[in-house]
Design a protein around this nucleic acid. Sequence first.
DNA 1: CTGAAAGCGCTTACAG
DNA 2: CTGAAAGCGCTTACAG
Lengths: 342, 342
Amino acid sequence: MKNNVTMRDIANQLGVSIVTVSKALGDKDGVSEELKSRIKRLATEMNYRYNTPARSMKEGLSYNIGVIIPERFTEISQSFYLRIYQHISRILDTYGYYGILNILNHDDEEQLYLPRIYNEKKVDGIIVLGQVSKKYIELIETMQLPKIFTDFYDEHADIDSVITDNFYGSYEITNYLIQNGHTNIAYIGNIHSTSSIQDRFLGYYKSLLEHNIPMKQELIINDRDERGRDIDIELPSPLPSAFVCNCDRVAYKLSDKLKAKGYNIPQDCSIVGFDNDFYATLSSPQLTTVEVNMVQMATISVNSIMEKINHPGKRFGRVLVQGQIIYRDSVLTLHPNKDDIL
Amino acid sequence: MKNNVTMRDIANQLGVSIVTVSKALGDKDGVSEELKSRIKRLATEMNYRYNTPARSMKEGLSYNIGVIIPERFTEISQSFYLRIYQHISRILDTYGYYGILNILNHDDEEQLYLPRIYNEKKVDGIIVLGQVSKKYIELIETMQLPKIFTDFYDEHADIDSVITDNFYGSYEITNYLIQNGHTNIAYIGNIHSTSSIQDRFLGYYKSLLEHNIPMKQELIINDRDERGRDIDIELPSPLPSAFVCNCDRVAYKLSDKLKAKGYNIPQDCSIVGFDNDFYATLSSPQLTTVEVNMVQMATISVNSIMEKINHPGKRFGRVLVQGQIIYRDSVLTLHPNKDDIL
DNA sequence: CTGAAAGCGCTTACAG
DNA sequence: CTGAAAGCGCTTACAG
């Protein structure tokens, strides 16, 4: 099973030095073209495989990036982060890097254990994918290597993060509802749960403010407990004419619930989501929603971490990735507002 | 940013040798308890992190396992393999190993390129997750390191694989339909596409044979082209009383299609799926289906690859992981068959 | 153009 | 109990 062909073996076969083999295989200068091609040919013949770990040690780089995802975001119904990880992994590949997935389980997060990938120097940098506790953020800050937060941020921590422009996306889609004549609009989401949900709420609120629509406490509806687990959504009565949901998954659940009670969507009630994931096209009618640009988020996260590896001092701050409204069939036009339609 | 505390630094501070530090931190014999604890204390004080790559090189092990997933199984609607990867990654952790995800893209598969993780000696073994082409299987066989196929196999290739007992699962769920009075049963799936779909078909067929129900060609319905991409499902006319679908996703699609045409499920037509994934509970009525034991598959795959790393000659052959029927609401009892009900 | 020497951070015999 | 020596498979100056 062992394939232990090394540069030494090639060198011995050809009666040259290891240095020369190293130069030839690395396409460096200082070897005649003729020798170089002889070496390369023999290398393939002998099924030589380059030993990256050896180079790694010399350079002090592992060519791995750790991707940390908190366990609670990896449950059966959620594949958003797993998906982004997949993109990250693909993009890292273009840099000659690899992604190592590290699921952070509840206990380790609570006990403030450092991830093994860090303690064992397995990675050159880490991308934290999904909000972790304040305490854990502080712990991460003590880690001496480049790091990026993706899809969340912490206003107190001075860490670079790549996030969707939740605020603006939510603001825009709420504007869209108002343009379509809605004024009685609820927001669904635990506004103390994650920065994303909170910012989406604030975008909704800004839109109300700008249109002089008073915000009603009873229309801010909770959807999950402090640990992020779903709770039953309590429908307000009377029903508002539209719901801004903090994500498509919850919009899907809401839609199901309303339909079960005999309401038609969007005739009796409009719904908009956020993410444009899987759930958006699964629900019927399909959801009008804000699309999160996953590829862009993954790309920027990877580019930034690579940049930080090469230039240690480099800072990026909070990078916002713009979303885009996808218009589908879950919003009813009540009476078009002439001002906005033009 | 650099944290380059090495054993040498600790040794120098304490005026001892590197060997002694290595023994102390590795909890080896040959250091007095007193010195050992002094060394450990200083190590934490200095934020020393163990350099696994260095040990790796010495031992010739990377402590990484490559998980190869063909690109076509990672599309937006499919998260099955990503999910298994997640379990694999979690279980590898218990061995002190890490999982490196390697998406195999169409071109590389076609061009028969070896994965970079292999060429660069980044991994000690690989798990191939999801069926690859015959040619690529042959290429994988030439790779000189432990390997496991998960969720598919090749009858010609002599490689260890971990698969769901597709044949038996499908046989059982078809039996269940027949016990409920169904005799006109269709199978949906491209039976030349993957070994899973083929074996599930054969289980269905065995059940028909055993009950002396003739198989009708027109009731074997294609659902995807040779590249695995969905095609429109053509409903047979007249409609059979039940459909055995090769997976829940397709069952979900079928259910939607039937409902759109005004049929009620299961009143007009029964449907069973396979996998018990996300789609099974998403469709309404929820699907009666065969649950694939993902955790078990991941566990066996990991245990086997670890075993093979430690004992190179070790072979496992084809390991079948039993499924389990999950009874829900998508099957109508036509007239119970007294013999089977008892 | 070619190669001897030193080193990356550890561990494993082996000697004292 | 403690440590000098050799080595894992490479690369990077530097010398010839």
